[in-house]
Design a binder for these strands. Structure first.
Lengths: 255, 255
DNA sequence: ATAAACCTTTACGCTGCGTAATAGTCAATA
DNA sequence: TATTGACTATTACGCAGCGTAAAGGTTTAT
C-alpha cells in the first residue's frame, strides 16, 4: 500500500504539514519521491509514524523521538524514565504555581470584598449551621454526637489554605463527575476517581472515615434536594450517579 | 530615584533584554528617554515592574498581564480564577501523561526482559563463537589457551545486569568516540576517555587485562572489516582513530 | 478543456526572551 | 586628550512544532 501525504495524514489523524515537517527534520522520510516530486510512503513508514505519534503522545520531544527510533540499540526505557522525571518536576512546579495562585486569589478576595475574615468566618459558620440544621439530628443519630461536633470543630479550625484546597477539591469532583456521567458507567475508572476525590473531600470534615458513613452521605445526596440540585445542575441524574459510584467504591452496595 | 535598564534589571533580578522587550510590547515603558536615547525608569515603573513579575511568577502570560495592569477596572480575580482553571487542566493532562509513561515503562520492562533473555542467550553464544572462529587460533597463540577459554566462560556466565551494563558501555564508547573523532586528536581528553571506557568494556570479557593485549585488540579493529564497519558506521576512519587512541592510552605506541 | 483537488517549496508567525552583531555614549584613566 | 571599559541603543536570528498563507505544478473528474 502506498500513500501520498494527504492520505497518510488522514489515516494517522495529523496534518500534511506535519508530515512535511517530519520529513524536513529527518524524523520520517518518505519511501520514495515520485517523478512529480510527490512524497510516497509505504507500510514501513506507516509503522514508523505510529511509533512517532505514540511517543509524541507521551510528550516526548521530536528530537528525543528521533534518537529513540533511529538508534536501534537506544535505551528507550531509561529515556522514558528520564522523561518521566521531567514530567514529575513539571507537575511539582505546576502544583506550586497553583498553590500560589490560590493564595493570591484568596488574598485579593479578602481585600476586594469586606474584611474577609468576617466573610470567611461567616461562611464557615454558615456551613456548620447548615450542616447542623439539615443533618444534625439524623447524622447525630446515625454516627454519634461526637463525630458531628468534631466535624464542626474541624471546619471552624480550617486555615485559609485548607479552605482553598477544599474548594478546589469540590470543583474537581464536580468536573470529574461530569466526565464520568457521560460514560454512563458508575463502576468505570472516571466515576471511581470521582468517588475517591469525594472521599478525600469528606476527610476534610470528618475525623475518621468509614465506608458506611461515606455510603450514607451518598444516599443523602439523592434524598436531599439541596444536594441533588447542586450535583444535577449541569446534568439531571448526576447525584444518583454519584451515589451509585460511591456505593461501588465503598463496596457497600446491596444489590 | 531614576534607573537605567541595567540598574533596574539588577534590582529586579531580570535581564536588560527583558526590560527592552517589555518596552517593545508595551507592557512597561520607561518614564522618559534621555537625550542619548537611554531608557530612564522612575519609582512608579519599579512598582509596576514588581506587579508584572508577580503575575509572571504565577505563570500568567504577558498578554494577560498587560490586560490586568493597563485596565484599572479589570477583574483580576476572575482572570486569576480563569488562569487557575487552565493550570488545573494542565495538571490533569500532566497526570494522564505521567500515568501513560508509567504504563509504557512497565510494559517495555516486561517485554525487554523477556526478549532480551532470548536475545541475550543468542548473543552470548554468537559472541563466543565469533571470537572463537575469528581470533581463536591467533589469540590462543598469543595469549594462551586458558585466557580464551576463560573469556568464553565469562561471557556465558554474565548476568542480565552485567549484559545490560556491557551494552550501555558499548553505546557510550561509540558516542564518546564519535565526539572525540571530531576533535581529530587521539591524544585528547575525549579520545583517551573513549580508550578508558574501552578498557572497562574489555574487562567484562577478560580475566586479566594487559596493555599489550588491549593494543592487540585495537589493531584487530582496523584489520578486521567486521569491526571496522561497526566503528566506522557513522564516520569512516573512526576505527583507526580508536586504535591510535588506545595505542597512546596503553603507551605501547611505537613511533 | 477546464475546474477541483491534489501536490510542491518558501517563508512568516506564535512566546519570551537569549544571544550575537554593530554602533553610539559616558566616565575614568594614561 | 585619546583611549579604554562599561554602559547604552537597534536589528535580527534562534528555540518547538507546527499553522497558515502564497505562488505555482500535477492529477483526476467532468
Amino acid at each position: 500500500m502506498e500513500y501520498t501525504v494527504q492520505k497518510l495524514s488522514k489515516i494517522a489523524g495529523i496534518s500534511s504539514r506535519t508530515l512535511r515537517y517530519y520529513d524536513e527534520i529527518g524524523i520520517l522520510k518518505p519511501a520514495r519521491i515520485n517523478p512529480s516530486g510527490y512524497r510516497i510512503y509505504g507500510q514501513s513508514e506507516v509503522d514508523m509514524l505510529q511509533q512517532i505519534l505514540f511517543y509524541r503522545e507521551l510528550g516526548v520531544s521530536l528530537e528525543k523521538i528521533k534518537e529513540i527510533i533511529t538508534a536501534p540499540s537506544f535505551d528507550v526505557i531509561s529515556a522514558l524514565r528520564n522523561h518521566r522525571e521531567n514530567l514529575l518536576e513539571k507537575r511539582d512546579q505546576l502544583d506550586r504555581l497553583i498553590a500560589n495562585v490560590n493564595k493570591t486569589i484568596a488574598f485579593k478576595e479578602r481585600r476586594t470584598t469586606m474584611t474577609d475574615k468576617e466573610k470567611f468566618e461567616g461562611f464557615k459558620q454558615k456551613l456548620v449551621d447548615d450542616n447542623e440544621r439539615k443533618y444534625g439530628r439524623e447524622v447525630r443519630g446515625k454516627y454519634g454526637e461526637e463525630a458531628v461536633n468534631k466535624s464542626n470543630e474541624k471546619v471552624m479550625g480550617m486555615s485559609q489554605e485548607q479552605y482553598d484546597e477544599v474548594t478546589r477539591l469540590a470543583a474537581k469532583i464536580k468536573e470529574t463527575l461530569h466526565e464520568a456521567f457521560k460514560t454512563g458507567e458508575p463502576a468505570g475508572e472516571l466515576a471511581q476517581k470521582a468517588a475517591d476525590l469525594h472521599r478525600q473531600w469528606l476527610c476534610y470534615f470528618w475525623d475518621s472515615y468509614t465506608k458506611e458513613a461515606h455510603a450514607g452521605v451518598a444516599q443523602m445526596y439523592v434524598d436531599d434536594e439541596r444536594f441533588t440540585a447542586y450535583y444535577d445542575e449541569k446534568q439531571p441524574g448526576t447525584a444518583a450517579f454519584l451515589r451509585e459510584a460511591i456505593l461501588i467504591y465503598t463496596g457497600t452496595r446491596t444489590k
